[in-house]
Amino acid sequence: MWFFLRNTGGHMMKVKVRFFARFRELLGTDVIVEVGERTTLPDLIKQVTQKNVEGYNAIFDEHGHFREYVILMRNAKRIDIADAAMNIVADGDDVAVFPPVAGG
């Protein structure tokens, strides 16, 4: 499933966001999003989830912070959610967002 989200103005970059497990059910599998320069990781995920209340709420808390168990990967590298806001996305980035599953 592919979605294309478009922003306007400035130099646009294409970034791929992949969701897993429950996040995937709510938000789809892969999203290609165009974002402006200086877009941070939280901005990116908020942009992708803004029109999906349930999806947004699964990933962000009431203060707009990543829920503490959310796992973020950027180009196969783990990004601590505490450092996410310091990460500026670049053209061609592959961002993965997933919740650990718990059952056995």
Binding site: Y69, P100, A102, G103
Partner: peptide
């Protein structure tokens, strides 16, 4: 390292083929 914080406890849905 991989999962520093536990997800909330819930009654998880499951079909036997997954485990």
């Amino acid at each position: 390292c991989i999962f520093p914080k536990a997800p909330p406890k819930e009654v998880f849905p499951v079909v036997g083929v997954t485990p």
